[in-house]
Nucleic acid binder design. Structure first.
Length: 425
RNA sequence: GUGGGUGUGGCGAAGUGGUUAACGCACCGGUUUGUGGUACCGGCAUUCGUGGGUUCGAGACCCAUCAUCCACCCCA
């Protein structure tokens, strides 16, 4: 059996990689317009970072991490997400000494040991943004509007932006107690999963898909009801700013984020039509995280977006641009002398930035033309015995079928002109 | 970790126990000598995922195993 790639990973080949480049470029452009700068951190980190950062009770930590011992017996983990790493860098590289807030973005691979399914991989890719050192509601609103505007630019439709506030640790524990009290009366009606969640994370019961659970929780106290003064005004301010920014959102009091570190604002963007894993972006505020991993008390806000899922959505909505790179010209050289001369010519053309290539298999004239056509070249540059003698080159337009004879001396200049003209059109 | 579907040449896809395993697309070559995109011919020389078993005989039936897809849990 030949060696295969690991389960849940993928080879991105020419033909699809262009769509990735397009998506990444669009994201970088939006970030630049919003004043966010890129950060790159290691793909693996000390396991401890994620234990503290992501939270011991989360599934990510409990069963999804790629953890290994290095040769010095240190426990290392392939990053399952980026927020913890960015916070670590903020502390370690003393970014708190720079003008605040620090506005960062990243694009890169993440790793989680899960069963693959539609829109889910073991090595997947996320684009994300983190703002550190800003506790104002504008921060939340700016980041969410960045997400919204990115999707607008990509042309995605049918998005649902859900926004909620899970409160600070104080109102959160208050809500948790109220909720457990409310649910305990009808505990017997809950599904098996929810019984688990009752102790571990009762908030999650609120968005259980099971109909009976939904019935049970229909009148449950919402997070919004129990928000303290500070959290409440913060939340109202975020909503007001989102209105101003033209973000179409919905307050969803049942929205819960899975990771332990979230406080106050939480949001999520979903699209139908890409399968069961319909969440394409999730994020929120995490005011305790930096301190948790040993830094100064620092408020934070951010999100992560799954590239595979966004790409899936773009694909089903037919929003991917048609890209056909195509060579400008293919050299058709016949015989070794012509190949030598042509090789030099290509060098001149490439130096000037023209995309040109040649047959590398020593094929016949016919085969070379065929191949030039198949590769979508606009022109074929034919150089054989006759042309060598006359010191000319045949430039054949493959779409029109016409060809002209150009003195070798003028060829570079001539092609350059043709290329410039073509680029403008 | 749990459940279900699928697994035939690069891709798509016939074939449901019996001679030399269709077909389409793609790719490569050729159709008298230096002109492609159409047409015609040929090639891609075989482990029908893999390993067992049933049978006179299996790509088709049974078992196991691997891979893949989808769903649950959870998340991007």
């Amino acid at each position: 059996m030949a060696i295969q790639r690991p389960k849940g990973t993928q080879d991105l080949l020419p033909g699809t990689i262009e769509t990735w480049q397009y998506l990444e470029e669009t994201m970088r452009n939006v970030c630049r317009e919003y004043g966010y700068e890129e950060i790159r951190t290691p793909i693996f980190e000390a396991t401890e970072l994620f234990l503290r950062g992501v939270g011991q009770t989360t599934d990510i930590v409990k069963k999804e991490m790629y953890t290994f011992l290095d040769k010095g017996d240190r426990s290392m983990t392939l990053r399952p997400e980026m927020t913890a790493s960015v916070c670590r860098a903020y502390v370690e590289d003393k970014l708190y000494g720079q003008p605040q807030p620090v506005k960062l973005y990243y694009i890169g691979p993440m790793f989680r040991y899960e069963r693959p399914q539609s829109g889910r991989f073991r090595q997947f890719h996320q684009f994300g943004v983190e703002v550190l050192g800003g506790d104002q509601a504008v921060v939340d609103a700016e980041v969410i509007s960045l997400v919204w505007n990115l999707y607008q630019r990509l042309g995605l439709t049918g998005l649902e932006v859900h926004v909620n506030s899970v409160g600070c640790p104080v109102c959160r524990t208050k809500h948790r107690a109220l909720l457990q009290e409310f649910l305990s009366a009808r505990r017997d009606d809950l599904c098996k999963d929810c019984l688990d969640r009752f102790e571990r994370n009762p908030l999650r019961i609120l968005d259980c898909k099971n109909p009976t659970c939904q019935a049970v929780t229909s009148g449950a106290p919402t997070t919004r009801d129990t928000l303290c003064e500070d959290c409440s005004t913060h939340f109202e301010r975020v909503l007001a700013l989102l209105e101003v920014a033209g973000v179409l959102f919905r307050v969803n009091p049942r929205l819960v984020r899975g990771l332990d570190y979230y406080t106050k604002t939480a949001f999520e963007v979903m699209v139908e039509e890409i399968g069961a894993q319909s969440s394409i972006c999730g994020g929120g505020r995490y005011d305790g995280l930096v301190e948790e991993i040993g830094g100064p008390p620092t408020p934070g806000f951010g999100f992560a977006m799954g590239l595979e899922r966004v790409l899936l959505a773009l694909q089903v909505q037919h929003k991917l641009p048609e890209q056909k790179p195509g060579m400008f010209a293919m050299l058709v050289a016949l015989g070794e002398k012509a190949q030598t001369q042509g090789f030099a010519l290509l060098n001149d053309l490439r130096t000037q930035g023209l995309p040109v290539s040649m047959d590398l298999l020593g094929r016949s004239l016919k085969a070379q033309l065929k191949s030039a056509d198949r590769q979508g070249a606009r022109y074929a540059l034919i150089l054989g015995e006759e042309e060598m003698e006359k010191k000319v080159l045949l430039i054949k337009d493959l779409t029109l079928g016409e060809q002209i004879e150009v003195p070798l001396m003028n060829v570079v200049e001539e092609l350059n002109k043709m290329y410039q003209r073509g680029v403008k059109v």
